[in-house]
Design a binder for these strands. Structure first.
Lengths: 330, 330
DNA sequence: ACATTTTTTGCTACCGGTAGCAAACGTGCA
DNA sequence: TGCACGTTTGCTACCGGTAGCAAAAAATGT
């Protein structure tokens, strides 16, 4: 049994299909009598307007493509929850696109464009700037936004957490606690825009103490990769030469690093090695980790993104101040 | 500048719009010469077919609605990753719908239906059976599937992990390890179909030892809720009267329970209290938890779901055997 | 060379709505 | 009663594709 259309309802109610449409268009010109008649007939036939047809005619789908590539980061889940809930509250629907080896940004963006989405949100994904600037969409494609990440790209506003302030705050805290030999663990991306936190942190210590940052890189953004990177470093460097505090680019890395430091090298955190993360993912709050970390103002960020999508706010790069969450690990 | 349409390309290439369409339809009848001519013109105008219009005409959107309500469960993220990746590999796109107080199953299903999705997947969501059976979609709506959860609903196949086998395996393991006073922590849902694990576990101990299960309930499926439920129990019951093993309905609850047992009551896990989870979420593998848990065969489940969606497999309830992952906590 | 078959191209009708104009209707007032 | 005016309804055209038939063009056979 096929779905009923406005035409079917029209016949059932003995009116034209345009009257049916009007009964379903708020504020349209229609008498109470015919509206009631139509709604009753619609109810009988189980009619509800076909949004696909409407989208085609109105040139607006109320769909937003959200690109994600970093499913190993537990922080993504609550963030995604807020994002989808807020989009839904505005009548928008989320097209979740998984960016991976088999499905890259260009695929995703072209496909989203063909589906006529109203906007594309790059939610913390790692991309090369060139990829986006020379993709074959002329200026005709949907507006794009970068969420939870910086972007220098002309015409692609970024909504992010202010990295400079964040790193300064973390650095200041660590300095006050007396740490003097800092290390930094980055995730895989060697992309220009991804170096913000590392660069700022490096600069901070250089300026504050004239001290050089020890840098290490994980293969990916995951606890396992963080564990491996920490393992490499700790097994290579003698205890007396080691850093005294490790800042990890995100919490996932920090969890892995902390696990290895404690269980494989018997280090006490923070006494032998302090650890700091970024994101305030759920496990950070657990006494099992008690990770000192930095919380992004996700509510503000989501709100800002949606305001831009709906053109309630100017479409330009903004960032917000997060807050340091001090726990036991540093 | 508006997007180019087939008609625009047709003019540019000096052919009819149907020839343009054919150039973009694999296996259509068209000479190499005109195809080349069309593709070149399309390239110049940056044309790509409008999938919305195609969907309207073909009555198939290649979109699948995925309903999620349990964003506190870290296990959801990798599962969702697999699901989206596999859907994309089949040319399907994911409409992610967040079920919450403001947006319930009925909203979600009606909306997905209006958007003409090809299928609706209830991904581990908590629902009352009545809600689904009497929603106003006649038999015209898209096919529905329940993933990672049981369902008794006529016409709505479930793809799940075999709970009977899973609980038997866990029970057997615990029995062998010598545990004799079992407890069970359930999540919030007091819905008929959600009681599977609890009931099976209860039955197991009754049959094996004639022992009664101590039951507790968390408010939600989250570490915090698990922590609170454990706190309630432990502060109420004297050490000598306590259970010796606690099975939690999922890992999130188990993490919370373990945190509280250790840090607030100074209990050693597993010596004073053993703990078992369900899902094998990422932190379970960490030495910080070392949680004994049960892993659902997510790959098989995702594959089965997609086979059903694409009608490559009969649309009927199936379940798969998972595997017990023994770590330190039990 | 011409009839016949096959391939290629163009066409009408359609998917299910929306936009906005024109006709039909009802009402108030001279 | 007739006219002007505002409201309600119906209409054509359109959004950008697809399906499948019919005409035109090219390939084949004798």
């Amino acid at each position: 049994m096929k779905r009923a259309t406005a035409q079917n309802v029209a016949m059932e109610a003995g009116v034209s299909k345009w009257t049916v449409i009007r009964a379903f268009t708020p504020g349209a010109s229609i008498t109470e009598a015919s509206k009631a008649k139509v709604l009753e007939a619609a109810e009988r036939l189980n009619y509800r307007p076909n949004l696909l047809a409407r989208s085609l005619a109105t040139n607006s789908t109320h769909q937003v493509a959200v690109l994600v590539d970093d499913f190993a980061n537990p922080h993504k889940l609550p963030f995604l929850e807020k994002l989808t809930a807020s989009l839904q509250a505005e009548g928008l629907v989320t097209m979740l696109i998984n960016i991976n080896q088999h499905y890259n940004h260009v695929h995703a963006i072209l496909n989203a464009d063909q589906r006529q989405v109203d906007a594309i949100v790059l939610f913390g994904t790692a991309f090369r700037d060139e990829m986006l600037t020379d993709h074959k969409l002329g200026r005709a494609g949907p507006p794009m936004f970068v969420l939870a990440r910086d972007s220098q790209i002309e015409g692609v506003p970024a909504i992010s957490c202010n990295a400079v302030v964040a790193i300064a705050e973390i650095g200041k805290h660590l300095l006050e606690r007396g740490y003097r030999r800092p290390g930094f663990m980055a995730g895989a991306r060697t992309l220009s825009t991804a170096l913000g936190r590392r660069r700022n942190f490096k600069e901070f210590w250089r300026t504050a103490l004239g001290v050089e940052l020890v840098e290490m890189s994980a293969q990916r953004y995951s606890a396992e990769a963080g564990a491996q990177a920490a393992r490499d470093y700790l097994s290579k460097v003698a205890p007396e030469d080691r850093i005294d505090v490790l800042m990890c680019e995100n919490d996932a890395l920090a969890f892995g690093a902390m696990d290895v430091a404690r269980s494989e090298f018997g280090l006490r955190v923070p006494n032998d090695l302090a650890i700091v993360g970024f994101d305030n993912a759920a496990p950070a709050a657990s006494p099992a980790y008690g990770l000192t970390t930095y919380e992004q103002p996700t509510d503000q960020m989501v709100k800002a993104a949606i305001d831009m999508i709906l053109e309630r706010a100017p479409r330009e790069t903004v960032n917000f101040k997060g807050k340091l969450v001090v726990r036991d690990s540093a």
